[in-house]
């Protein structure tokens, strides 16, 4: 039965993800919450690994989450289902609709759909950033702050600040975009260093 659920859920993700990659993250987060086998924290770990291993992020993430919900078979079903709508739609497109792709109205419709989807991606990034730290901020605000909680918050913001600074410096001084994998490696080094120092 769990396989049937995975089948349906990932088929829907495949159908509703325009552009792939990061567009699936908001929907995968919904699934993680639905099955409650996967914490937001774990999902973020998965995203980082998906980003730094071979293959499309959306596919890696589908295999990961499917695996978490239904084991090896779950992972395979999730991945195939996420791909299936794209596969069928491309076949239909190549056969029948190739000429419509340059149509002005189709282009305009897509140019209004994309900003909406980017909005949901930005929202997920922001909620993830906050949800990492919120469980620690809440007790600090309500009652007497506890030393380890304050330390956690401090570490969190120091790392966030340093990452943003490095990205900013790369952008402004070296005039080159730093790749996501390098930012993840930077995060790992900072995570180890700060827990060693503080």
């Amino acid at each position: 039965m769990i396989y049937l659920n995975i089948f349906y859920d990932f088929l829907m993700i495949g159908l509703f993800s325009f552009g792939g990659g990061y567009t699936t993250i908001p929907m995968v987060k919904d699934i993680a919450e639905k099955y409650s086998v996967l914490s937001i924290e774990m999902l973020e770990n998965f995203i980082a690994i998906s980003e730094s291993t071979p293959g499309p992020i959306a596919i890696n993430l589908a295999t990961f989450v499917g695996n978490e919900i239904g084991g090896l078979v779950g992972g395979i079903i999730a991945t195939i289902c996420e791909v299936l709508p794209a596969f069928v739609i491309i076949l239909i497109f190549v056969k029948y609709f190739k000429k419509y792709i340059d149509n002005e109205n189709v282009k305009f419709a897509l140019s209004t759909i994309r900003p909406c989807i980017v909005g949901t991606i930005m929202a997920v990034g922001a909620t993830m950033f906050v949800s990492n730290i919120y469980p620690y901020i809440k007790p600090v605000m309500s009652s007497s702050p506890n030393y380890s909680q304050l330390k956690y918050i401090l570490k969190y913001f120091i790392i966030a600040f340093l990452i943003v600074m490095v990205m900013f410096l790369f952008d402004k001084i070296i005039k080159k975009k730093i790749s996501s994998i390098k930012i993840i490696i930077l995060g790992a080094i900072l995570g180890i260093a700060i827990n060693y120092i503080l």
Binding site: I47, M122, V124, A126, G187, I189, G191, I192
Partner: peptide
């Protein structure tokens, strides 16, 4: 390491968007 990586991921998502 993953403590730092999780912070990096949320920043990457915001930056990508």
């Amino acid at each position: 390491a993953f403590f730092g990586i999780r912070i990096a991921v949320s920043i990457i998502i915001i930056k990508t968007a």
